[in-house]
Design a protein around this nucleic acid. Structure first.
Lengths: 144, 144
DNA sequence: GCACATACCTTGTTACGCAAGGTATGCGGT
DNA sequence: ACCGCATACCTTGCGTAACAAGGTATGTGC
């Protein structure tokens, strides 16, 4: 314990309370915060949307952007690699459609494997939400 | 469109449905899935716990490990850097306590700035959960 | 002495999400 | 014809949080 302070109950970092709350919630900080919170939910969101029917990539982009005030929004750099990953894993199937269209589109369908995976994801998400709910709303009930 | 398939509505990846569901949910895959889903929630969880009273690092580790069947578990490599980040940001205060103990412990208290930040985090988390809830339970009601 | 628990620290790796860049075509206006 | 914008898809480098794994140190029981 050579590097340990010898003084008793001395705060190691005095926060400046009057300034930090204001500076921390500008547009950039809020965007980062949202990003981090929503991280990991893209897969669940995409598979969920696909259960109600096939969609092409750009359509998924637009749809997720509009869902829930944008909290589920993902960017192309996220969505397309994710779609490719899901396809490689056999959870979705992709088909190019060219006939009867002015331009081709790549449609995605969820597979039975994808539906099975989604069921697991849903269960895990529910657990997470319930656990967090317990923390946020009933902290004194958490066992020690 | 030189690289575009010329055939119509041809699946680009034929999944093997009988095998994928079984192989994807072994212990490692489930652990990865949980990790990704919970990603970004550590900060919310830690600040929430601290609102009901000061705690030292190891205690937080154990407590989160036990909460909700382990879905909120974080490892040291995650927790301590997070605690340091929160301290640097003025959201928590850290104090070493050595007197009257067999060994020193580093206690963490949430600051007023931390409480303000937590309120924002909670609001964003609630939005995310509601949005996802809408996707999962009422897909046909999502606007096109 | 040793093994394990308690308590904290740190770094390199992993993996996802974003920014930014790219390709291509269609459409409307000039 | 050109241009700007929309539609549609692709990809890579960067940033960041989480983990694995390594480390320090002390206390306890055998």
């Amino acid at each position: 314990m050579l590097s340990m302070p010898r003084r008793v109950a001395l705060p190691t970092n005095q926060p400046d309370d009057a300034e930090d709350p204001a500076n921390q919630h500008g547009p950039d900080a809020l965007a980062r915060l949202r990003r981090e919170l929503a991280r990991g939910t893209a897969e669940l969101a995409v598979l969920s949307v696909l259960t109600s029917g096939r969609r092409y990539g750009y359509e998924l982009l637009k749809l997720l952007e509009r869902t829930g005030a944008g909290v589920l929004e993902v960017k192309e750099g996220t969505l397309y690699p994710l779609l490719h990953r899901l396809e490689d894993a056999g959870q979705i199937a992709a088909t190019w459609e060219v006939e009867g269209r002015a331009r081709p589109r790549k449609y995605y369908d969820i597979t039975p494997a994808g539906r099975a995976h989604l069921a697991v994801l849903r269960a895990e998400w529910t657990e997470l939400v319930n656990a967090m709910h317990r923390l946020l709303d009933a902290l004194d009930k958490v066992e020690k």
